[in-house]
Nucleic acid binder design. Structure first.
Lengths: 345, 345
DNA sequence: ACATTCGTTGGTAGCGCTACCGTTCCCTTG
DNA sequence: CAAGGGAACGGTAGCGCTACCAACGAATGT
């Protein structure tokens, strides 16, 4: 019997528990718990005494036990459609940086742009009772949306803004972004402006819609100028689609690409075909990756504040967890058109 | 009293528990638990009955309670030095893909190339009693190494290989990679071959050592050919360091860059300065990012199998969790030199 | 016929922590 | 001086699940 109990208590690999600390410090377990979580509620003297024992024993609270007892895991679930896409990598970096000294942990889920994966991951996240959820985009499936609404924790939708947030939202209008970039190309004197887009997720669709709006406004829209694919975007895909675009509309004089990888691919393809940028062909990208500035020629792009989106989404989540709902549930971070050589005719 | 109990049991937001399922299915709670975790040990009939109730109630096991009771969280901790670095993004993608249908979750920690951050994150991970740990590199601090050794779970070190694994290892030799790329440049007829490297983490240091070995072997080594910085690597940093390298060694005829971003930056800088690649300057990168193939000219690079490293590291971890230690604790995935236009004199 | 094993199921007792309520003690206040 | 209030701390009772052992009937062996 005794051995049984011993074996049992060794389950945790002999790590010290809160009871060990309490015993050694000569206080109750709950006081140790408070000293760690709400230091203000424990007298300075006792607190020091307890912290000394914590240090001495190398006590680390068991997150699982804590989560079970408080019905709340110190975890923020984050759902992104891709991890290799530079844009989301930056968002995620912002999220990690924004967390900084917080005791919370983030858990990333990769949906691969699939809404059923999103639902599954949401369910897994919810089974931990996360402190908050951050999800990408505003096009959740009805099931996913209902899961989010019943999540019983702060929810931040990121990257886009729309009329009906589940809870909070931070991002920018991809439609306006697409429109702004296209208008710039028109003002720069280009007329046969192609749209080149891969992956074509909802955000790219809205960029395309913005492009179309600007083109129609100027009476320049032509179906044949649009070349898209649902295949993943990449630099080589940019080259490939540019070739396709040229085949469909040989007289095109500019390309608005749905992201910078595609733009770079188009730029390389122009080099290869001996088409001069910006004189023969103007090129504009989307997101303004770091490399666009040093490309040769440098490439015009629409700068998006994706690191900032990550950082601020976490800040919003942390504030909401602490009970401070933001004044504005929807934050529009906008964008900035960075004009460079590739569109200077 | 009754209300107290009710309020208590509502902590979990009214979600069904295993007891609810057991009651409704007319079985013991432990049988439900088994039906979910070890279906083979429950008779088919009962299993079906239980699963029906699970579906009906929408029961999802509480991960925290499970972790507490079993002294093991269904979490694999992964430590990487960067999330925006394309290389690690691919590793992480491989890890997520390798997980696939497993019930385990991964938790990523970003060390920002700082070893104290690594120690802190390890401690946080360990406080959850992870099922396995995956860490980048082989240069852990003594403290981190000791934490890993006492982690009481499978540990996989990735990206590099070395003589003394904590447990298991999968990667390749950066020294040999650096040597192979440099030898290729020498064989291609280049003589004044610069090494250009940013960030200069331990892996880049080993690439540099490989470069140096190959250069000394050929009697071509010269301190002035080496230009490095500890600042983060990027395409623009590639341009900047290439300018610096030219200033230090005006007669250089090739550049081996410590990664492809740097190589791309060097390539753009050559364009800008009117230096022809590969005739005036040869350029070789490291990792073989997708874009190297479509660059103009296409860029020679040393392909590393980073996605594969991610996938197989997870496979090794899962196998070890299941009790199947691999025959070989150290897996060398090697590399592949992809020769392209940028080094064809 | 009996003992032995095995497959299947259930009861009990925690895992390590925190919510909830009590208690104590000191300081106001009338 | 009693009554009231608040700060500091502790005891009790779980959170929802699983490890461990026990129990039971059926199948097997001798």
């Amino acid at each position: 019997m005794t051995t049984g109990v011993k074996a049992r208590s060794r389950r945790g690999g002999g790590r010290p528990t809160i009871a060990d600390v309490a015993l050694k410090a000569g206080v109750g377990a709950i006081t140790v718990s408070r000293a760690l979580r709400e230091p203000d509620r424990v007298s300075l003297e006792l607190r020091r005494q307890i912290m000394a024992v914590v240090e001495e024993l190398g006590y680390v609270p068991d997150r699982n036990a804590r989560a079970l007892a408080s019905a709340r895991a110190d975890v923020i679930g984050v759902l992104v459609p891709s991890l290799t896409n530079n844009v989301f990598a930056e968002v995620v970096r912002g999220i990690y940086d924004g967390l900084d000294q917080s005791h919370l942990q983030v858990q990333i889920g990769n949906t691969h742009y699939a809404c059923n994966a999103e639902e599954d991951l949401l369910r897994i996240f919810l089974s931990q009772r996360p402190s908050a959820l951050i999800v990408s985009g505003i096009d959740q499936s009805p099931v996913a949306r209902s899961l989010l609404e019943r999540a019983n924790c702060p929810v931040v939708q990121i990257m886009e803004i729309g009329p009906e947030p589940v809870d909070m939202m931070i991002g920018f209008s991809h439609h306006e972004g697409g429109k702004a970039a296209t208008r710039h190309l028109i003002e720069a004197g280009y007329r046969r402006i192609a749209f080149i887009g891969a992956r074509m997720d909802p955000r790219s669709q809205r960029r395309l819609a913005g492009y179309r709006a600007a083109m129609e406004e100027a009476g320049l829209f032509d179906e044949r100028l649009v070349t898209t694919t649902i295949r993943p975007s990449s630099v080589s895909m940019g080259s490939e689609l540019f070739r396709e675009a040229i085949a469909r509309a040989p007289a095109l004089d500019a390309a608005f690409c749905n992201n910078d990888d595609m733009a770079l691919g188009a730029l390389f393809e122009c080099h290869r075909q001996g088409r001069a940028v910006p004189s023969d062909i103007g090129i504009a990208g989307f997101n303004d990756l770091e490399m666009m500035e040093v490309a040769c020629p440098s490439v015009t792009s629409l700068r998006t504040h994706r690191y900032e989106i990550g950082r601020r989404s976490i800040a919003m989540a942390l504030a909401a967890i602490a009970g401070h709902r933001p004044a504005e549930a929807i934050v529009d971070l906008g964008f900035e058109l960075i004009v460079r050589e590739s569109t200077k005719r």
